[in-house]
Amino acid sequence: MKFFLLFLALVAGMLAPLQAGLNGKIGRAVGDPVYAALISFAVGSAALFFYAVVIRVDFYSIRQAFGLHWSVWSAGFLGAFYVTAVIILTPRLGATLTFGLVVAGQMIMAVFMDYYGLLGVPVQAFSIQRLAGIALITAGVILIRKF
């Protein structure tokens, strides 16, 4: 099971630059990265709704989300910001530099979240190995930028 989850994470990561390129094409076609993100989210929402209907999700359970603190709803804003930023950045910086920086930012935030146990993430001690991992990713971004 763990192998499947690791593989799923790898595939999800591989699809992100592909999504960025496709969303960039939409952005160029409609002339605005925000409209491209809106189209992307509309198609994604339709796909999720179709999936939920096919597997017969209990839609009543969705009502539980309305009881959540308002700050939890900012996840949608963060997703919209991320997708729009990637649509803007990928054609200008290239997929490799864009996603090198995205991964570096993700690692920095992930280590911070792990250290403090933010949002229910299991607490993980900060270590020199984690710092080295972030440094190596950052060095990779610098190499990509230079060459």
Results as ranks from 00 to 15, higher is better:
Gly133Ser: 12
Asp114Phe: 04
Gly117Ile: 14
Val121Met: 07
Pro122Ala: 04
Ala135Pro: 08
Leu97Ile: 08
Val53Leu: 12
Ala125Met: 11
Gln124Gly: 10
Val83Trp: 01
His69Lys: 15
Asp58Phe: 03
Gly117Lys: 08
Leu118Lys: 01
Ala125Thr: 06
Trp70Glu: 05
Gly76Cys: 09
Ile87Ser: 00
Thr98Asn: 00
Ile137Thr: 15
Ser74Ala: 09
Phe59Arg: 01
Leu78Met: 14
Arg56Pro: 09
Phe81Ser: 12
Thr96Ser: 15
Gly67Phe: 12
Gln124Pro: 10
Gly100Ser: 02
Leu68Val: 15
Phe112Pro: 13
Ile87His: 00
Gly140His: 06
Thr98Tyr: 00
Thr84Leu: 01
Gln124Ser: 07
Ala132Lys: 04
Ile55His: 10
Gln129Trp: 02
Gly133Lys: 05
Phe50Ser: 11
Gly140Thr: 06
Phe59Glu: 04
Val54Asp: 09
Ala95Glu: 13
Phe50Met: 13
Pro122Val: 02
Phe66Arg: 07
Ala75Pro: 08
Met107Asp: 10
Val103Tyr: 03
Val102Gly: 03
Tyr82Ile: 10
Phe99Cys: 06
Val141Pro: 10
Ala135Asp: 06
Phe77Arg: 09
Arg92Asn: 10
Tyr51Cys: 05
Tyr115Pro: 12
Ser71Ala: 13
Asp114Val: 07
Val111Asp: 12
Thr84Val: 00
Phe50Gln: 08
Val54Ser: 11
Phe50Gly: 11
Val57Gln: 09
Ile128Gly: 02
Ser71Asn: 08
Gly76His: 08
Tyr115His: 15
Gly120Glu: 10
Tyr60His: 13
Ser74Gln: 12
Pro91Phe: 06
Ile137Phe: 09
Leu89Asn: 00
Val103Phe: 13
Phe59Cys: 07
Val54Trp: 09
Leu89Val: 01
Tyr116Gly: 14
Leu101Asn: 00
Pro91Lys: 05
Thr90His: 04
Ile128Lys: 11
Gln64Glu: 15
Phe112Asn: 12
Ala135Phe: 13
Leu97Phe: 09
Ile108Met: 11
Ile134Lys: 05
Ile137Ser: 15
Ile55Thr: 10
Ala125Arg: 02
Val72Arg: 14
Pro91Tyr: 05
Thr98Leu: 02
Gly133Cys: 12
Met113Val: 14
Tyr116Lys: 15
Pro122Ile: 03
Leu89Cys: 00
Leu131Met: 09
Ser61Arg: 14
Ser71Thr: 14
Tyr82Leu: 14
Ala95Pro: 12
Trp70Thr: 09
Val72Gly: 11
Ala52Asn: 09
Leu78His: 12
Thr98Cys: 00
Gly105His: 05
Leu136Val: 11
Tyr116Pro: 13
Met107Trp: 07
Ala125Ser: 03
Arg130Met: 10
Ala132Tyr: 08
Phe112Leu: 14
Leu131Cys: 06
Arg130Cys: 05
Ala52Cys: 05
Val57Ser: 08
Gly105Phe: 03
Ala80Asp: 07
Tyr51Val: 09
Leu68Phe: 15
Thr138Tyr: 07
